[in-house]
Amino acid sequence: MGFKLLSKLLVYLTASIMAIASPLAFSVDSSGEYPTVSEIPVGEVRLYQIADGVWSHIATQSFDGAVYPSNGLIVRDGDELLLIDTAWGAKNTAALLAEIEKQIGLPVTRAVSTHFHDDRVGGVDVLRAAGVATYASPSTRRLAEVEGNEIPTHSLEGLSSSGDAVRFGPVELFYPGAAHSTDNLIVYVPSASVLYGGCAIYELSRTSAGNVADADLAEWPTSIERIQQHYPEAQFVIPGHGLPGGLDLLKHTTNVVKAHTNRSVVE
């Protein structure tokens, strides 16, 4: 069995187990497998329904001669939608809004960016022009300005110390501490036991640490421990890039980060 097929099978099995364990909360999309990078042309966006009122959005972007996937989250909030992270750029984010209108038909009224990198804030200006209120932590807003990236308009308070959590509509926002970046936030959907790890969490097929220019490698494993301790009931975990899975993604990420750190020390 090929690795790609095995990865998709694991996603399907995880979703099936969740649907059985929580039949009222989960209505997993039966329309197909989780979209992969090879299936999404740059400039297009796919939506994948995880649970009743919960979707991931998947886009792709060219970077350094390669094409990478990027995940975000959409959560229903009454007759409105909360968006977590842009679709990595203005063109993708405009396509995301169009796809949401086509498939869901509810307005996106608020959006949260989970850290300051372009795959999370690139497209904020498109959201703002569409009347979406954009939010991020003060740290993310400051770092985005320093980096020359787009800056969300509103500040999220109460997320300055490791372990801080605040309720934001249908989700809980959690600051686990520094990891992929010093400002990275985690998003949890309690009604569906869905954990969105953003770039602080890796997919299972990833074996290298990737972009760690703004990471705190020493603190990252401790931050992941905080996530595990705060959300032990999480059933569906979405990484910032690639295929979702279960809580095993947290341990896998820790292993990859520690291996990278150990290699760096040896070198």
Rank of each mutant, 00 (worst) to 15 (best):
V194S: 02
G148C: 04
Y12R: 10
L249K: 02
G246L: 03
L82W: 03
G89I: 00
D125T: 09
H260L: 08
H117I: 00
V237M: 02
L243H: 15
H230E: 11
E267Y: 09
G198A: 07
S16D: 08
F63S: 09
L250Y: 01
H154S: 09
G148V: 04
E80N: 09
E80P: 02
G89A: 01
T109R: 13
N255K: 13
S38Q: 09
G131I: 06
D164E: 10
S31N: 10
S7L: 07
S155D: 14
T134S: 06
R141P: 04
Q229V: 12
S161N: 12
P232R: 10
A111C: 07
S113I: 06
E225A: 14
E33I: 10
L97M: 08
Y202V: 15
E101P: 06
A213V: 13
D118I: 08
I151K: 07
A192I: 06
A111E: 13
K8D: 14
T254W: 15
D118S: 08
K8R: 10
V67L: 15
A136P: 04
R128P: 05
Y196R: 03
G89K: 01
F236E: 07
G158W: 05
D64P: 07
D77E: 09
N149S: 11
A130K: 13
I227F: 06
C199Q: 02
T207E: 15
L250K: 00
D64T: 08
I20L: 11
L173P: 08
A19I: 15
A21M: 14
D125P: 05
L96H: 02
I20P: 07
A87Y: 00
Y188P: 00
E39W: 08
S137Y: 05
Y202I: 15
I224R: 03
S139P: 10
H260D: 11
L9M: 10
W88C: 00
K102L: 12
S62E: 09
E267K: 12
A25P: 14
Y48W: 15
G78F: 07
Q103F: 13
N92Y: 05
V54Q: 03
A179W: 03
T261E: 13
T93F: 00
G2H: 15
S31Y: 11
H117C: 00
D29L: 10
A51G: 09
L250C: 03
P23I: 09
H252M: 03
A215W: 05
S223H: 00
D64N: 12
P170W: 01
A98V: 12
E172G: 02
I50S: 03
V11K: 07
T254E: 13
L250A: 02
P239D: 01
L243V: 15
D118M: 07
Q229A: 13
E203Q: 06
L47D: 02
V132P: 00
E225M: 12
Q235S: 11
H252Q: 04
I151D: 03
M18F: 15
I17F: 10
Y48G: 06
G169I: 04
S139G: 11
L249W: 03
A130H: 11
L6W: 10
P190T: 08
G177F: 03
